[in-house]
Amino acid sequence: MTHETPTGAGQPAVLSINGVSKTYAGGFTALKSVDLDIRKGEIFALLGPNGAGKTTLIGIVCGLVTASSGSVNVFGHDINGDFRLTRARIGLVPQEMSIDMFTKVKDAVAYSRGLFGKPADPAYVEQVLRDLSLWDKRDEQMRALSGGMKRRVMIAKALSHDPDILFLDEPTAGVDVELRQGMWQVIEKLRQRGKTIILTTHYIQEAEEMADRVGVIRQGEIVLVEETATLMAKLGRKQLTLQLAEPLSAVPEALAVEGLTLSEHGDALHFDYDTRADRTGITTLLANLNAAGVSVRDLETRQSSLEEIFVDLVGGAS
């Protein structure tokens, strides 16, 4: 029986990855006990450097890679025991351009639909091709299409059986800015049609732009799963550093305020504040410093970007 496991944010998990590990024949461990739940209808961005295990993880869920241990459930069904049920609900757009150059667009899409055991449905296929601006190209052979169109055909093929979950492995890798934005629009449209989308990317901006949640994978381990909005809120925070003329042994009581800390050597004060707040507290802090007779030698502010958070998290990867 199909059941959906409730998870955070009140959304059911359509995909549950539990303790999945993968060690390849050569001894390379690509995944180390990965746990991840994907919520219905969300766009989830899996962020990580090359070799972090993104494609291996997708490959395991879709049947291209055999997991060494762990289990994966799709809508409550095990991907090995009930592979027909689980695969029928998943669409995959791989990273590599994998197409038969001599096939016509409409035949390629019809082939994919047939492989999934679905009867021909010209109206649905037409809608998919129109959504992806490929209808005019339906009678063209693949080799006659541009790179961006070929990529869209691969999406059309993945959507041919009307899956609930769509995996996009680096959908914008190697495409120019204009095409990338076109792809974002396509993905947004798919979300509006109720698809759950899991995409991998190198681009922080891509994750920020589209994803509801972001997961960061490093050396085969998921090191962070966060709502994109929460991450963005962290982005809104800045840190003011005040270099003191004379070191302090502790923060004077008169200055004590939330977000203010003394550096290890006592020669600087750090003040974390929210740039979007009505009152950041900087003016008060500076006035209090003056009143307490604490002299400031220099000051600077810095903002931690998602890029920095990402780099910090994956820093040990290389």
Binding site: C62, R84, L85, R87, S98, I99, L115, F116, G117
Partner: peptide, 14 residues
């Protein structure tokens, strides 16, 4: 050779 084997492996086909 052309990579489309992924379709066979990810489809609900034995």
């Amino acid at each position: 050779f052309n990579g489309t084997v992924y379709e066979l492996l990810s489809a609900p086909i034995s």
